[in-house]
Each structure stands twice: as structure tokens, then as C-alpha cells.
Simulated assay, not measured.
Amino acid sequence: MTLEPIVFLPGMMCDARVFEPQIIALGRERAVTVAPITVGDSIETIAQGLLAQLPEKFALVGLSMGGIVAMEILRRAPDRVSRIALLDTNPLAETPQSATIYEPWIIAARSGRLDDVLREMMRAEFLAQGPERMLVLNRFYAMAADQGAEVFVRQARALQRRRDLQSALRRCKCPALIMCGAEDGLTPVKRHQFMAELIPYAELRIIEGAGHLPTWEQPDQVTDALRSWMGQPFVLTA
């Protein structure tokens, strides 16, 4: 039997490194792909561009902004998504007030102060407390700096303008995993409980000892949850 491939969508200012433990573990069992979300300044444009490149059928894993793109892919091409896992993300559109937060960051990034922006965007309190917190945070800053200011601006614009994706979740008919770090200070557990309630038969997994980057903070827990989700049947019944 041919196993379906997994497509990983990294978060804002992230690349394949954010899924490295999962790629190594699950890549021994099936094909894995990391699809960049760096091209395009709207969620719709990013999703459409990826759909032109991805396999005909695939399992989809999205972290943070990657989860938002994953929901848009599900909205556009539900028949191509065999299953979906959404990690530390948000299906809601930005409010006019919250969208304005990005403007000073965009100006600062364009004026050469990307490092300052990254430290405002990803703060220590978004991650789990513990001795590894600063190590994970600095690892993120290094990865994000590699993406560059122009990627930041495009992704910020895409998030500013994103649509509400609750309806895509309500129509989801494939096995769905909603995962969140128990100490995520950016997209909290309550938001993920709400998401799981929108999707028929969705599984909710709260990762203890993790915040907004559980793939790094608790890699084994995340990998085990993904492996279990990949083992679920395609057809869900009550």
C-alpha cells in the first residue's frame, strides 16, 4: 500500500528547521515535503501557489501561520487534503484594531530593524517556562533572521488581510488533529478547543511543557500525536 505524503507548512518566519524532529522521524516511514509560505502577500495567493506544486492528495500539517495557509488550502481544495493537523494557529480574521499592530513592525523591518521586530513578535512568554525556553527562543530568532525583511513584510501583509476560516473547518470531512502547547501565550488553548468543536470528529491534543513552538519544545510528544493521526482511517464515522 502506498502511504500518503505529508506536507508541512512552517509558521511565520520559519522554514523546515521548525519541523526537523518530525521530518526525521516520520520521513523514515513515508514521503515528507516542506512547502514554503514565503511567496505572496495574501493567504489566498500563497495557498493557490502551493496547490499548483503539491501532490494530488496529501496529509497537511500547518503550524501557526502555516496552519492558516493549511485552512485556506482546505477551503479551496478539500478533496486533495486527506487529513489535516493544525498546530498553535488561529482560524479568525484580524480585527481592524489587531491588524494595525503589523504596521510599525513593517516600517521597522524595512528600515533595517528586523531583529528588533522579531523580538517583539516572538516573546519569551509565548513559550513554555523552563530551562530550554531561551534556547528555543534564540533558535527561532536565528531561523527568522535568515528569512529576511522582505519575507517578513509579505507575511505580515498576508496576516493583516486574512479571511475568517471557520466555515472551512465546519465543512472539514477528513481526519483532523488540533494541537496546542499547554503554555502557548500567543494562540491559547481555548482557541484550539473552539477549533476542535467546529470540526466533526476532530481530535484535540494539548502538549504539556510546550508553548507556541511545540515541535521544538516537546518534539517527541508532537511526533507521537502526528503518527497516531496518520494512522486514523480516511472515512470517519460516528
Rank of each mutant, 00 (worst) to 15 (best):
D15E: 12
E150K: 09
I68K: 11
P233Y: 13
T38S: 00
L137S: 07
P175S: 02
R83D: 01
E217R: 03
L226S: 09
E29V: 08
V235M: 03
A70W: 10
S42V: 03
L60S: 01
F8A: 05
D116S: 03
I23A: 06
P131G: 06
P36V: 15
E94R: 01
I73G: 06
G130C: 07
M143Q: 14
V189I: 09
L9V: 07
R17E: 12
T95A: 00
P188Q: 04
L198C: 02
Y141W: 06
M13D: 11
R119V: 02
R17I: 08
L9W: 14
A85G: 06
P5H: 08
A85I: 01
L86V: 08
I37V: 09
F234Q: 06
I178R: 04
R17A: 10
L169N: 12
L114K: 00
P55E: 03
G148F: 11
R133G: 10
Q155V: 13
T45W: 06
S82E: 14
E20L: 15
K57F: 04
L137Q: 09
E208H: 09
L213P: 01
L74I: 08
E150C: 08
L226F: 11
T215Q: 09
A168D: 13
R83P: 04
L198Y: 13
V32Q: 10
I206A: 04
R80T: 02
L236M: 06
M122P: 05
P200S: 02
G27T: 02
Q22I: 13
G231F: 09
F8T: 09
F58M: 03
G27S: 09
P36G: 14
R227D: 15
D146P: 02
I199V: 13
V69K: 08
G62E: 01
I107A: 05
H192I: 05
V34T: 11
R157A: 14
A35Y: 01
G231N: 09
Q221L: 04
P5T: 05
T45M: 05
T89F: 03
P78I: 07
R75V: 08
I206N: 03
D146Q: 11
V117P: 02
Q48F: 10
M12S: 13
A31G: 01
K173R: 14
A109V: 15
R83Y: 14
R171C: 02
V69N: 10
E56V: 09
Q48K: 13
E120C: 10
D15I: 00
P96T: 00
P219D: 08
P5V: 10
I106Q: 05
F194A: 12
P219V: 04
P104D: 11
P214I: 00
A182Y: 08
Q218W: 04
V189N: 11
V39D: 04
L159V: 14
L204W: 11
D164H: 12
A210D: 07
I84Q: 00
V61H: 11
A25V: 08
I37L: 01
